[in-house]
Amino acid sequence: MSEAIARKVDTSHMKISDEVAIQITGMNKWYGAFHVLRDINMTVLKGERIVICGPSGSGKSTLIRCVNRLEEHQQGQIVVDGTELTSDLKNIDKVRSEVGMVFQHFNLFPHLTILENCTLAPIWVRKVPKKEAEETAMHFLSKVKIPEQAHKYPGQLSGGQQQRVAIARSLCMKPRIMLFDEPTSALDPEMIKEVLDTMIQLAEEGMTMICVTHEMGFAQAVANRVIFMDQGQIVEQNAPKEFFNNPQSDRTKLFLSQILGH
């Protein structure tokens, strides 16, 4: 278990409203003949902080990539913030501009400066004036504690810094929901902490978050719900305390013993 999260996070003030942010019902997905996601039912409320874990190949990344339609589902329904995801491109672009995503490999645009990375989508998608977009970008870059790197290129930054830029880039679109797809898996242990700190800060501000991660310390400290997936299905979900101390299914017990055992 990673001990990157040493500090106790006070989650009591993080309010969860009863408004639905994401509603997934009876969702199935296949890659060719391979059934990757099976009968997924899941409701995410505004302000929830959900951690999805599970062995590799269990479909957890695919699941969150379905939420902003980087992957297409073949059956069932996904409603994000009141908009159903169908093949209608307008709806897809609308959902994508409301949902921020952070990738394992950062995926910053190497030909643009940090500032340009952050202002690109607000200017072109939200039609924000350039000056205003730059101010917003500097605000979020200060928030992730790298305003001084604004005029450098991504290749000049460390992995942890790049990932924090990627978070700031998503935040510049003022998203209502943030998806994190293994944001710390490509980072050195030292850098994991700075990224997790940024994510905790976001959670404290009440952002609705779904995180695919192996950082169980983060799950215990921040999440209000942990979902365990295996073989494309949701096997168990519970509050973190219950989930870690009293897992119900045998598969979960085995998984936890393997990742917490060493």
Binding site: N68, L70, L89, D93, K94, R96, S97, V99, G100, M101, F103, H105, F106, N107, L108, F109, L120, A121, W124, V125, R169, S170, M173
Partner: peptide
């Protein structure tokens, strides 16, 4: 890398914006 296309999509850029920018 495929991530470049995905990041452009995830930010809500449409096809022509993603190609051009």
């Amino acid at each position: 890398p495929r991530g470049q296309f995905e990041a452009a999509d995830a930010l809500g850029l449409d096809y022509w914006q993603a190609q051009r920018l």
